[in-house]
Design a protein around this nucleic acid. Structure first.
Lengths: 241, 241
DNA sequence: GCCGATTTGTCCGTATGTATC
DNA sequence: CGATACATACGGACAAATCGG
């Protein structure tokens, strides 16, 4: 729910672009015109435009205007991008998600896990393994490690549904920053057991470290994706600094 | 070269964080203190902080301060992220780049290419295939397609070095936005011929569509990465809109 | 639990610079 | 050249979160 004015304007313009009210290669109304439309200051309009640019919807051109560079994508594969839970992605892609919990353990970090996750040695953690299905096809083998001190009260039942939903709506913790890495790795026995990899023997592996609003890293996750259904997308802007 | 004040402040703070003058989990000086340090307005400080947050260096906390969440990474693999040319990445990773041009052709888009690239049917294009080496190891098979109208005068010689360098420093074109997609694909014969894939039969494929300052898509690129040396990283921030 | 100081978040109005047409 | 458009920067106001006394 946007309450800030600039978020409302962002959302409104974004919808207009998606509905092709402003279409590809059009110029948006000038900033001063938008000031009149939304009765706000130019700064506020500019914040909204900055968000649109970051999301790859528009591009500002000095002296000319703000050009729309959004083109509707042919919703095919299951795409990821941004910080999004599996459930959220599934809904956005119009698919039915299902989660099977393979392991749910409460343990302490040993040397290997501390190294890998960046959590202090000996921290209390939840160690979770899950298989994610979309329309009955196993897509992802997920390994989630949560700091128990930051995410208390996690249960196997919650893991069957959405952990992010629990974190945000029950614990009221704000997820802010996520650092991600994408690699290609050879499959392990456990990958082969749960994902139907056929003649592939590799996976796309997304590891992420997520920080909450207190700047504490509370999560380390390794998402091991079936190569056929892995599609990551993002929009980058060139910084001249 | 930063000339804008907020870019200078950004760069300065970034360097201080990288040199661990401000270290992980520290709070930066308050915005009002930074206003005094850099003798500028609070808005300007806040823009610099916004850039740092976007780059995953800091995270603001309402009522508390701005927390440093940067941790030095062990420069191991060849990492990509942001909009960066192969040459720039190589230098950042302290490696020696080498490029072999396999094909350099001036053709028109046919149906298949028009579909794939998003260029109009019949456009004049440069079609380029290159193999990228790092310290004598072939890492990437690159297919670049450039709109001739936007990138005139491209030669095989330029392709052996840096096309981006030519675009930005000779043509003075500004690269702004890039939309990327990462997938895993089975290798083709030509991949096997030029990359030493051993027992892998897949690659990490990064396709990107790049727009210049006029909002015109001038490039379509398919970078086919050897799985062992592929590492993509980024920092995402959760939007609550 | 309240209050006040500090800190970040949002928003406004204005001035000036610079690119495009 | 002037009009229009975006870019940068300043200063001020108030809101909201945090923390210490």
């Amino acid at each position: 729910m946007p309450k800030a004015k600039f978020e409302t304007i962002y959302k409104d313009l974004k919808e207009k672009i998606e509905k092709e009210e402003y279409t590809f290669q059009d110029l948006l109304p000038s900033e001063n015109t938008l000031v009149d439309i939304y009765s706000c200051s130019r700064n506020t309009v500019r914040r909204a435009i900055a968000l649109l640019a970051e999301a790859g919807y528009v591009q500002s051109q000095h002296g000319k205007g703000v050009r729309v560079i959004y083109q509707p994508t042919p919703q095919t594969a299951f795409t990821i991008g941004g910080i999004e839970s599996f459930h959220e992605s599934a809904i956005r892609n119009h698919k039915i998600p299902f989660t099977k919990v393979i392991q749910f353990a409460e343990i302490h970090t040993d040397n290997r896990i501390a190294q890998k996750t960046g959590f202090p040695l000996g921290s209390e953690i939840y160690y979770i393994q899950r298989v994610r299905y979309l329309d009955d096809t196993p897509l992802i083998f997920d390994i989630n490690i949560f700091l128990k001190s930051e995410v208390p009260g996690l249960t196997e039942e919650i893991c069957r549904h959405s952990i992010y939903d629990y974190i945000e709506n029950t614990l009221h913790m704000h997820i802010v920053t996520s650092k991600r890495q994408i690699k290609v790795q050879k499959s392990t026995e456990i990958d082969e057991e749960y994902l139907d990899l056929t003649d592939y023997h590799v996976l796309a592996v997304v590891t992420s470290q997520t920080y909450n609003a207190n700047g504490v890293q509370f999560e380390y996750t390794e998402s091991r994706h079936h190569p056929d259904y892995f599609c990551f997308h993002d929009t980058a802007t060139r910084k001249h600094i």
